[in-house]
Nucleic acid binder design. Structure first.
Ligand SMILES: [Zn+2]
Length: 277
DNA sequence: AGGTGGACCTATCCGC
DNA sequence: TGCGGATA
DNA sequence: GTCCACC
């Protein structure tokens, strides 16, 4: 499930496409959840040069000459792959964009939740994107932005940092890990969090995400539906996870048992001792 | 306002 | 081994 | 991972 670090790792791998032009579009096979309208994808990319790739939260934005923009969201199992031997997974290929120099961008997605939207002659696809808060890796993100959007609201801390207007790019894994690092209970109402605790949370989030990017992202299992970078390689941050997926195991800090509880239909892992209410 | 549960899909993992 | 159920 | 309908 690509979150900020995984999307960032993919983006960095795709930078080799910058400066190349699109020579063809191909949609291997139909099926449920059509990921993109081929007509508009073609008119937004064909014969155009890729000028820039950027990330907004978990979205990837490709700017082609024109300018025309194309935006991808990978949801749970989407992948963006460069030219390579992925023939055994070809049944999950959704769209293949060919570039000059024989380069390719392959959108592959096992669960078919991911999608791609493009600019048309008159409208920018940015208008379809949600609002984003300050990127956690940018200077405008911090204790101030967190406590500001918390105000006197009563929602639980974990739900709060999963809000893309608060910490765009954070998903379930990194929400759990960030709260553990900050020593904060996921179920605490945000209006009880103090200034020092916001500082600690902001720092935890930033450091965590940078470290995860350094490790090439998190790859939970070995199946194809798990994360890999643009060259098909897994990440290594799973070795550094301290609470996620560790129910019943010993807390790395206090040796007590890590517990898991559902919150918002998603598993929430925490140490009851290190993260008291 | 905030929380829950389902919908969208397919694969994998676990226990019986 | 095969199957339902839970989870990603 | 996100959206939406419902309490
Ligand atoms: Zn602990």
């Amino acid at each position: 499930m690509p979150e900020l670090p995984e999307v960032e790792v993919i983006l960095r791998g795709l930078l080799v496409l910058k400066g190349l032009a699109v020579t063809g579009i191909e949609a291997p096979r139909p099926g449920p959840n059509t990921p993109v309208d081929l007509e508009s994808l073609s008119s937004a990319t064909l014969e155009r040069k890729l000028e820039e790739i950027e990330r907004r939260g978990k979205y990837l934005l490709f700017r082609f000459s024109g300018p025309r923009e194309v935006v991808f969201h990978l949801k749970m199992t989407g992948k963006l792959l460069l030219r390579g031997d992925f023939s055994e997974y070809a049944r999950y290929h959704r769209v293949i964009i060919s570039f000059t120099r024989g380069q390719k961008l392959i959108f592959n997605d096992v669960r078919r939740f991911g999608f791609c939207i493009c600019d048309s002659n008159d409208t920018s696809c940015r208008t379809c994107l949600p609002e984003f808060g300050p990127d956690p890796l940018s200077p405008s993100f911090g204790a101030g932005s967190l406590s500001g959007s918390a105000g006197d609201r009563r929602l639980k801390l974990k739900n709060f940092i999963l809000d893309q207007k608060v910490a765009p790019g954070i998903g379930n894994i990194y929400a759990n890990e960030a709260l553990f690092r900050a020593g904060l209970n996921p179920f605490r109402p945000v209006n009880t969090v103090g200034a020092g605790e916001w500082e600690s949370l902001a720092r935890s989030i930033r450091e965590l995400l940078l470290e995860a990017i350094d490790y090439g992202g998190t790859t939970l299992g070995r199946g194809w539906s798990h994360f890999c970078n643009a060259r098909g390689e897994p990440g290594r941050f799973q070795e550094r996870l301290m609470v996620y997926g560790r129910e019943g195991e010993a807390c790395v800090r206090c040796d007590n048992e890590i517990r898991s509880m559902p919150l918002n239909n998603r598993s929430t892992f925490f140490c009851p001792l290190c993260q008291e209410v």
